[in-house]
Write a protein that binds this DNA or RNA. Structure first.
Length: 597
DNA sequence: GCCATCACG
DNA sequence: ACGTACGTGATGGCA
């Protein structure tokens, strides 16, 4: 038991429970993480059943290495791996061919550390090298600092924790010119060394802040991100383009019409300032050119309807027209740059292009890459409202979901004090706007505007106010939840993330505090689901898109039914890790396009 | 480079 | 009296 003694000295508390030895870092003491890993590996070798729920759960590695690669392009289909540096506690070396480290990459007893693993692992896997057991110092930094888009580059993190300044001079691919110099090798080696050092420092921080479960979940979700980047999704651009040309014609016609009605030939309909000016001159007192503002005048002026339509079509053409062509690879697939932690709430994001924001009308042009395959598409039913039910503990909300009621209809019936069967479709629409808006702090004025913009329905400010009051009278615990969030010093998700004085604080009194636990928990449940899916899916199934509450798989037609079962099962199980008080429901279907229909 | 706007959830 | 639901990414105008 000498080893256990040593672990105790390193700051770990030992407990024997159910025949297992559990370790927990006390938060003080030496906590030499590198040494602890060695000791734990010794224990594992001697077949002592040891379970360390904080350190690494069941994972103990015989060795840790950090790896950094330099590539000739940003995406693997456009280039190759030019240089690989690998570092362990004995120093670093450089190799040019991934083949030389193939055994290390696949060894499940060696932990590979990358800074931004989804980049490096994507490249290795694209060229046929399996990478088992890896982790990511960039993700650790994002989790520790609760900052997502800034200060997480290797240079930033190195500066913060190692107090070293590293130059980015050689980082730009365009400076490489295909020639690798001694300088490049040193640069690459240095990055691997820094990554190695950072791993142990950041791991200590993760334990100290009790964020290991959060890290573990993000790391387990990484393979899904790599899949998304690797696979891409097929897009029938030529067909979409003929549609775009139609939109173009329509847009030009509307533009002429608007100009003639407003008697303003110089008007640029893309300029908010000019629209406001021109409309004011015409006698319509808009204060902004946003759709919500224009909606107020839509019933009274034909020209407003035209402008609203123009803006919609213009958006499609400018953001999703010819610009998409350059994003399409030789195999007709679009590969977005998916980010695992893109939002402050830890939602995923996607850029160039943003595949999470494709317009509904374009979805029917996204198709499986061959005739023998089909999309299996699943999405959570009203997930944020279910998370709200769990967190707020609101009995009415919980009952509604337990009984499988139509929540919007129920909300309308509660507020209007009438039987569910008597609720009209219009009333249901208002309740729907209320359900989605009020939980994040919408005012009665905002509700009024939203109802007009989305459904074209007029309600007075008094009616909206009455609706709002009625909502919180009915769902009283939601009001309690919001009040608690405004005042609390500590805001948390159900998956273990938190905002506090020590990590990062959310503005006191800010209504975005309502949203963070809900959107954050939903994102955590989705990542748990993605992990399960990656374990359970057949290897020929392709993960092609993930949009916050929706997962799209591309599977051989013969697997259609089993894929539906597995996908919805994983989604339910993943989210149910956190949501216990209400059932999780998933709508699943198969389709020859991404169209929801 | 920032702002307003609008695509998605 | 004032401003008025959260989280993103991409675009065009404007300075």
């Amino acid at each position: 038991m000498k080893i256990l003694k040593q672990l105790e000295q390193l700051g770990y508390e030992l407990k024997v429970r159910d025949g297992n030895i559990e370790f927990k870092f006390r938060g003080e003491g030496a906590n030499d993480y590198e040494k602890s890993l060695e000791l734990l590996y010794e224990i594992k070798k001697r077949k002592i059943r040891a379970k360390n729920y904080l350190l690494c759960h069941y994972k103990q590695y015989k060795k840790v290495v950090a790896i950094d690669i330099e590539t000739t392009a940003t995406m693997p289909q456009d280039g190759k791996i030019a240089l690989i540096a690998i570092n362990d506690n004995k120093g670093s070396k450089v190799v040019y061919d991934a083949k030389e480290i193939e055994d290390i990459l696949s060894d499940v007893e060696i932990l590979k550390v990358f800074h931004n693993a989804s980049f490096d692992v994507l490249w290795f896997e694209y060229f046929g090298y399996k990478v088992n057991e890896y982790t990511d110092t960039m993700i650790m930094s994002q989790i520790i600092n609760n900052r997502i888009r800034q200060e997480n580059s290797l240079a930033d993190v190195a500066h913060k924790y190692l107090n070293v300044v590293i130059s980015k001079q050689l980082q730009d691919i365009s400076n490489w010119n295909g020639v690798i110099s001694q300088e490049h090798e040193e640069y690459c080696k240095r990055d691997a060394e820094i990554t190695y050092k950072l791993y142990f420092i950041l791991m200590n921080e993760i334990h100290r802040l009790e964020l290991y479960p959060v890290l573990d979940r993000e790391i387990r979700a990484l393979p899904a991100i790599i899949e998304l980047r690797k696979n891409g999704i097929k897009f029938e651009y030529d067909k979409w383009y003929t549609q775009i040309l139609e939109y173009e014609k329509e847009k030009d016609m509307i533009e002429l019409e608007v100009k003639s009605i407003l008697n303003d030939q110089e008007l640029n309909l893309n300029s908010p300032i000019q629209i406001i000016e021109s409309l004011n001159k015409f006698g319509i007192n808009v204060t902004s050119s946003s759709d919500e503002e224009l909606a107020k005048f839509s019933d009274d002026y034909e020209v407003i309807k035209l402008i609203r339509k123009y803006k919609k079509i213009k958006k499609r053409i400018s953001s999703f027209g010819e610009k998409l062509k350059e994003k399409i690879d030789d195999d007709e697939c679009i590969r977005g740059k998916w980010n695992l932690i893109g939002a402050d709430t830890f939602r995923m994001t996607c850029t160039s292009p943003n595949l999470q924001g494709m317009p509904r009308v374009s979805k029917e042009y996204f198709v499986p890459r061959n005739k023998e395959s089909i999309f299996v598409i699943a999405d959570y039913s009203q997930i944020e409202l279910r998370v709200l039910a769990e967190i707020s503990n609101d009995e009415l909300l919980i009952d509604a979901f337990k009984n499988g009621e139509d929540l919007h209809r129920k909300t309308a019936s509660m507020i209007l004090n009438k039987d569910i069967s008597e609720v009209t479709d219009e009333e249901r629409s208002i309740a729907k706007a209320a359900n989605f808006g009020l939980i994040y702090g919408m005012t009665s004025y905002g509700l009024q505007k939203k109802i007009k913009a989305d459904y074209g329905m007029e309600v007075t400010l008094e009616e909206a106010e009455k609706f709002r009051n009625g909502y919180f009278e009915a769902y009283n615990d939601v009001l309690m939840y919001q009040d608690k969030m405004l005042k609390s010093d500590y805001i948390e998700t159900l998956g273990g993330r938190y905002w506090s004085k020590e990590t990062s604080e959310l503005d006191r009194g800010s209504i975005k505090r309502y949203n963070y636990p809900i959107q954050g928990t939903s994102a955590e449940g989705l990542k748990e689901a993605l992990h399960l899916l990656m374990m359970k899916k057949y290897k020929e199934w392709l993960l092609v898109a993930v949009v916050h509450d929706e997962i799209v798989l591309e599977v051989p037609c013969k697997d259609e039914d089993v894929a539906k079962d597995i996908l919805s099962d994983c989604m339910v199980k993943g989210m149910s890790k956190f949501i216990k008080k209400v059932p999780i429901e998933v709508d699943v279907k198969s389709s020859t396009t991404w169209d929801k229909s």
